[in-house]
């Protein structure tokens, strides 16, 4: 195989060692893949099929999915999650990019360095659950979808990563534009942003994953179950299944509590992540390491 390249000084592989490594790696792959494969495949089992530890259901059916998409809270929560993710990611990117660009001007403009320190400092502390809750309440955001977006609009870490990227852009381009009479806003929109598509994509993906996965804020700020995003519905429907009878005032509990329906809900909550994963994987190694460099 072309991809195995052994430098001359490395001894030829020892058969026993290779076999052992192969077994360990096989075991790791099994532990990582089996649970996901089990849930995905068995979400296509018919409700009558008896569950076994096997990966292949005894009888295939789409009934779990048709049940879910007849309407009701799972379908609605998916729409809520998609909307939160799209709107949230767009706003987060806008705020992060504008702030990150402004923060590159620490040398030229008074006050910017202080602003940078204020942003960096937030990585060191958090006021805690209760003070954050009180602020969200004071702004009247309780039971509003905005409570899932505005309190987590930007992360200092992402601002720093993007600022580092902007700092590396060739200065001559800005100078040339300035000579031609371009203002700072048009330099930002016409030169900086188009050159930063890669970093915008990576950070946008990270924000999107965070919005899609957000769970606790929804639990803390949204009492109204009809507004819940998918993660919260997944929690009550699959994890806290036992206490469902006490909350039978929402439509969700009309769903038959068959195991395949539970699994289908898990799958639906996972699919968007699986779709963006290849793009994420392409970029994240770079992103993680840039972030590790001091800002």
């Amino acid at each position: 195989m072309t991809s195995s390249h052994r430098p001359a000084w490395v001894e030829p592989p020892n058969r026993v060692v290779t076999a052992l490594k192969g077994m360990v790696i096989g075991l790791i792959l099994l532990i990582m893949i089996y649970p996901l494969a089990y849930v995905i495949l068995n979400s296509f089992a018919s409700p009558e099929a008896t569950t076994t530890a096997g990966l292949i259901p005894s009888e295939w059916s789409f009934s779990a999915y048709t049940t879910i998409f007849k309407g009701g809270i799972v379908q609605r929560s998916l729409i809520v999650s998609i909307a939160i993710t799209l709107v949230g990611t767009a706003l987060s990117l806008a705020v992060t990019a504008t702030l990150a660009y402004a923060l590159t001007k620490t040398r030229q403009i008074p006050g910017v360095r202080a602003a940078l320190y204020l942003v960096l400092l937030t990585m060191l502390f958090s006021a805690g659950i209760i003070p954050n809750y009180l602020v969200v309440k004071a702004f009247g955001l309780l039971d509003s979808y905005w409570a899932l977006i505005i309190p987590v609009l930007a992360s200092a870490f992402n601002v720093v990563v993007m600022r580092n990227f902007f700092m590396q852009l060739p200065r001559e381009l800005f100078e040339a534009a300035r000579m031609d009479g371009a203002g700072e806003l048009s330099i930002f929109v016409k030169i900086v942003l188009p050159l930063s598509k890669a970093v915008l994509a990576v950070i946008g993906l990270f924000y999107a994953v965070a919005y899609w996965n957000s769970f606790f804020n929804a639990m803390l700020y949204l009492n109204d179950a009809s507004k819940w995003p998918i993660q919260l519905v997944l929690n009550s429907y699959v994890l806290q299944g036992a206490s469902m009878s006490s909350m039978n005032n929402t439509e969700m509990y009309n769903l038959p509590s068959s195991q395949s329906v539970q699994m289908a809900v898990v799958v639906l909550a996972t699919v968007p992540i699986l779709i963006v994963y290849p793009f994420l994987q392409k970029y994240f190694t770079k992103g993680v390491l840039t972030g590790a460099i001091k800002g």
């Binding site: 702030l99 402004a102 700072e184």
Partner: peptide, 17 residues
């Protein structure tokens, strides 16, 4: 222009952190 770009982000960090 720069202060304008700075504003929304700083407002967020001041109000929510």
């Amino acid at each position: 222009a720069i202060y304008l770009l700075l504003l929304p982000g700083m407002l967020y960090f001041l109000l929510f952190h």
